[in-house]
Design a protein around this nucleic acid. Structure first.
Lengths: 141, 141
DNA sequence: CGATCTTTTTAGAATAACTCCAAACTGTTG
DNA sequence: CAACAGTTTGGAGTTATTCTAAAAAGATCG
């Protein structure tokens, strides 16, 4: 039997797009597969463009950005802001946090289940908590 | 008795620069006073340039950036990365974390003493924790 | 299917936030 | 104050991202 990637290459990703109310266009499908068909990843727009062109998919930079943001709004991606001047997009949208290795700019996930953030103060007036990000900045030693 | 800001306008800031091994030049003194003589603040480079020129201090953008980074290295400021595409510099270098109000891009400090972050996982191989940032993203409701 | 309408995509220009550079200037030291 | 190292500066250069208007591609209808 052929591997799933050959027998149902588009199906799961197609469903995700449909569920998100995004038209499954050629470029969205291709990008979704690059993003979601290989486990948890952290990508920048530029990396994704590189991967796309490497995979023979012709996509413009504008589409890369549009798509990353649409996926983020749809909850398929999460934007991670750790590095001034560049955004990472995380395919892991579960409850987790990040290690950020200064110098190499690598990101690593760690599950939120293992840690406890307690006694958070009350949010400023007229606001409610949307999300709590814990960024553990580490250095090579 | 006159307020300290009138009686000893330069002294404390001068000491801080000296202690940091930074030559107390006219621009560094002026920027340091704008930054440190009014309690805890979060500024962007552009804001600081605006304040400087408003205060009649002629400084170039390059110097604003140089100075912000030097102060950060010297431990007089802390860079806060929460907003893609812009850095904030925080004059509070104590142990604290941030509320970030999406939409208005406001930052508010909260003391780290009140919360507990427990059971942090071990950092990736060959690295050690430099800092833990907790960012509580809030939305207006 | 083909006309039509809407959504997407695209190349390239535009913007924003920095960073770099070589020349001018300034604080410091002897 | 001479002389040098450290600083500042305007302006050009970069990088990441957004915008724009026109072309292309899906969807819908008859």
């Amino acid at each position: 039997m052929k591997p799933e990637s050959e027998t149902q290459p588009f199906a799961p990703v197609l469903d995700r797009l449909r569920a998100a109310g995004l038209r499954p266009t050629r470029q969205r499908l291709a990008l979704a597969r690059l993003l979601f068909d290989q486990g948890d990843r952290h990508v920048t727009a530029e990396q994704l463009l590189g991967e796309a062109s490497h995979a023979g998919v012709r996509v413009s930079m504008a589409t890369i950005y549009n798509t990353l943001h649409q996926f983020t709004h749809a909850g398929l991606l999460r934007e991670v802001v750790v590095d001034p001047g560049r955004s990472y997009f995380d395919t892991n949208v579960g409850d987790h946090h990040h290690f950020f290795v200064e110098g190499t700019s690598e990101l690593h996930d760690f599950d939120a289940a293992g840690i406890e953030v307690r006694h958070l103060p009350v949010p400023p007036d007229g606001t409610r908590i949307a999300r709590v990000d814990v960024i553990v900045r580490v250095k090579k030693d």
